[in-house]
Computed example of a mutant assay.
Amino acid sequence: MTWARRLVGWPGAARVVAVVVLVVAAVLATVPSVRSPHELAPGELGVVALGDSVPTGYGCDCDSFARMVADRLGPEVGRPARLVNEAVNGASSGDVLALVSHTPVVSELRQASLVLLMVGANDVPLDHETGSACAAVGRNSCLAPRLSALRAALSTTVGEVRDASPKSVVALVGYWNVGVDGDEARSRGEDFLANSRSVTRSVNATIADVARSTGSVYVDGAAALLGPDGSRDPTPDLQDDGDHPDESGNQRLAAATMDALATSGALATLRERSVAGR
């Protein structure tokens, strides 16, 4: 009752209001701001890479293609790009799907304008001798269920990315070969190269279909290293293991990614959002 009486009369009320205002201001000053999805800090554009050893840049004393894309993206949109590389050597599509539910990764995705996703090669291990998805020569009956699982994991992963950052551009990157290629593949016999590339075409078709169905950008990794008709020898663009790209291979993948972003209209979208975000 005594406290209520002190509020009666303007001078006392004014003092109380002033104290309340000061307290509220002090509290607000100590509370960190929370970014809404796709809201970036001034001067930066977020890029997140997900996938296997190719986007990590494994084995190459050079930048990964993901790093190269971020470096090229900045001048294109007039805003520095910040890359967070969450790709993991040896990852399968199931591994990536599990990863995008982790709180730190979700936080990174919320601030991403572009998400690069390259995974699927480890979902379809090839027979070392035949290059087929199954041990028996010329048979790929093991492939269908693996492709179905890949499709489901990729689709769900893109959905998780979009839940975290609804306005982000998602780019799915295909492969030149899910196994070894070039001289290393030919050393295993003609059938190995033919069979492994056949499996790769099926994997790429699955990745491209998911890109279409989810409104994502598809990057043709096969055309990047094998040429538009598939006749180019990728040996000069691969490391000695015949499996991972060297510096020129990463440069080709980065160029293919930038081209896909440009031709799909995604680059223009990123540029517009970058200007609006200033």
Score class of each variant (00 low, 15 high):
residue 32 P to T: 11
residue 131 G to W: 13
residue 88 V to A: 07
residue 76 E to I: 01
residue 79 R to V: 06
residue 107 S to W: 02
residue 136 A to G: 06
residue 40 L to F: 14
residue 27 V to M: 05
residue 10 W to E: 04
residue 54 V to I: 14
residue 110 R to S: 07
residue 140 N to M: 09
residue 83 L to E: 08
residue 61 D to W: 00
residue 124 V to Q: 05
residue 127 D to S: 13
residue 76 E to C: 03
residue 80 P to G: 05
residue 93 S to L: 02
residue 69 V to C: 04
residue 23 V to E: 09
residue 14 A to I: 06
residue 126 L to R: 04
residue 69 V to Q: 06
residue 69 V to R: 02
residue 124 V to S: 05
residue 38 H to W: 10
residue 33 S to D: 15
residue 118 M to K: 10
residue 86 E to G: 01
residue 20 V to S: 05
residue 138 G to K: 01
residue 119 V to F: 03
residue 110 R to Y: 04
residue 125 P to M: 11
residue 116 L to N: 06
residue 32 P to C: 11
residue 133 A to V: 10
residue 106 V to Y: 04
residue 154 L to C: 11
residue 71 D to H: 10
residue 130 T to H: 05
residue 45 L to H: 04
residue 148 S to D: 15
residue 131 G to Q: 14
residue 101 S to M: 06
residue 136 A to N: 04
residue 129 E to V: 15
residue 107 S to F: 00
residue 139 R to K: 07
residue 125 P to I: 13
residue 79 R to M: 03
residue 112 A to G: 07
residue 59 G to S: 00
residue 114 L to M: 09
residue 151 R to D: 10
residue 36 S to F: 12
residue 55 P to A: 00
residue 144 A to Q: 14
residue 65 F to I: 12
residue 82 R to S: 12
residue 32 P to R: 07
residue 34 V to M: 07
residue 67 R to H: 14
residue 104 P to R: 12
residue 123 D to Q: 14
residue 59 G to E: 05
residue 31 V to H: 13
residue 67 R to L: 12
residue 16 V to E: 01
residue 74 G to P: 05
residue 22 L to A: 15
residue 116 L to T: 06
residue 112 A to H: 05
residue 30 T to M: 09
residue 139 R to S: 10
residue 23 V to M: 13
residue 17 V to W: 00
residue 115 V to W: 04
residue 83 L to G: 08
residue 115 V to M: 05
residue 150 L to S: 07
residue 100 V to Q: 04
residue 83 L to F: 11
residue 34 V to D: 14
residue 60 C to W: 01
residue 106 V to S: 09
residue 68 M to G: 08
residue 92 S to Y: 00
residue 57 G to V: 02
residue 70 A to E: 09
residue 89 N to L: 07
residue 39 E to L: 11
residue 149 A to H: 05
residue 103 T to I: 03
residue 94 G to N: 06
residue 84 V to C: 02
residue 91 A to T: 02
residue 75 P to D: 01
residue 104 P to M: 06
residue 149 A to L: 10
residue 13 A to P: 00
residue 132 S to E: 15
residue 151 R to I: 01
residue 47 V to H: 10
residue 25 A to E: 11
residue 123 D to L: 07
residue 24 V to R: 02
residue 17 V to E: 00
residue 138 G to W: 09
residue 32 P to V: 14
residue 141 S to Q: 13
residue 26 A to K: 03
residue 40 L to P: 11
residue 138 G to D: 02
residue 107 S to H: 10
residue 11 P to M: 03
residue 51 G to F: 00
residue 132 S to V: 05
residue 80 P to S: 06
residue 14 A to L: 14
residue 128 H to T: 09
residue 19 V to Y: 00
residue 41 A to S: 12
residue 59 G to D: 00
residue 52 D to G: 10
residue 144 A to S: 14
residue 83 L to W: 07
residue 62 C to S: 03
residue 133 A to P: 12
residue 62 C to G: 08
residue 125 P to T: 11
residue 87 A to Q: 10
residue 121 A to G: 14
residue 121 A to Q: 08
residue 24 V to S: 08
residue 86 E to T: 01
residue 91 A to R: 04
residue 76 E to A: 15
residue 110 R to L: 05
residue 75 P to W: 02
